[in-house]
Nucleic acid binder design. Sequence first.
DNA 1: GAGCTATGGTTGAGGAATCAACCATTTATG
DNA 2: CATAAATGGTTGATTCCTCAACCATAGCTC
Lengths: 169, 169
Amino acid sequence: MPTEPRWLNPREDRAWRAFKHAGHQLDVSLSRHLLQDSGLTQADYEVLAVLSGNSIDRMPARELCAALSWEKSRLSHQIRGMQQRGLIAREPNPDDARSVLICLLPAGRRAIEDAAPAHVEHVRRQFIDLFTPAELDTLATLGERALRHLADEPFGEGPLDPDETPAQR
Amino acid sequence: MPTEPRWLNPREDRAWRAFKHAGHQLDVSLSRHLLQDSGLTQADYEVLAVLSGNSIDRMPARELCAALSWEKSRLSHQIRGMQQRGLIAREPNPDDARSVLICLLPAGRRAIEDAAPAHVEHVRRQFIDLFTPAELDTLATLGERALRHLADEPFGEGPLDPDETPAQR
DNA sequence: GAGCTATGGTTGAGGAATCAACCATTTATG
DNA sequence: CATAAATGGTTGATTCCTCAACCATAGCTC
């Protein structure tokens, strides 16, 4: 049974603050750099990364959502912008008339290939290089433990589309 | 000299993904719970926490900004909303006519006192309780290392108000 | 195969954070 | 002391994300 005081003790508080703050600041810094020297948003980058990573340059929107852990509406909005900039295209999915295939266009591939080196470099400088291999493993282990726990949360997952709530009548 | 390949190796990639993803998911989950059972945003909560924590129930906006690592404009917008909800008040600062004192109102104190127990509880369940004391110390140490490094970044800090850029003419 | 329900996706409104521009006051410089 | 620069805050536009509502197609079940 875990301890249950109303507040965090100093050790707990320190860990919690450091973790939270570090993650956030890292995120801010990396997005800023990414945008600055490639014109891509983190969101843009992640989409292109999945699309270009999976060796097939097209995939149904639903799969992209799952891969990114995004809501479908977010992807939809995001895609619209990227399409206008010529990075990707939409195509009807022959296997399912409701579905849409998101296709990586040459410009999109070029965009991420241009952006990646500098971005990876920043991830190294601001994260990887600060830790020993053993420390990296520790971070991975602890992070994954938290993720596993969150995944089990009853209320935790799923943006709960009103459509998708369990039958109410 | 750190290794410099164009991509992250599997160990690095695992650590980076786990860290990033865990931080984000944790954040999402905690905000959702907080809002759900107290009606407060994370932003609301943080403001109230600083204000109620420092034993003096009022402080200049500038100090609040610093304590939160927020931009001044963000605080300004945030404060407007909280003022309308009667959680805090603004008062002129007798020491500096440009400045504004942000004051914690009774309703604000009540709000965070009501919200805190459940919130702390969630932080425990989803973070603290997953780790041993030694692991918590490790997380604190590693997180702080990252923060220190980010703080030194030449371009990293400060939203660079155009006003505040080094003299340009 | 008619009528549910579930699924894939789009849209529009609203909230939250950022950015640029601005105003007022204070401090530094000559 | 007059003026320039720096500081504390506010505001409005913009972008990004979430939510709720919606449409169309697919899959069941009878």
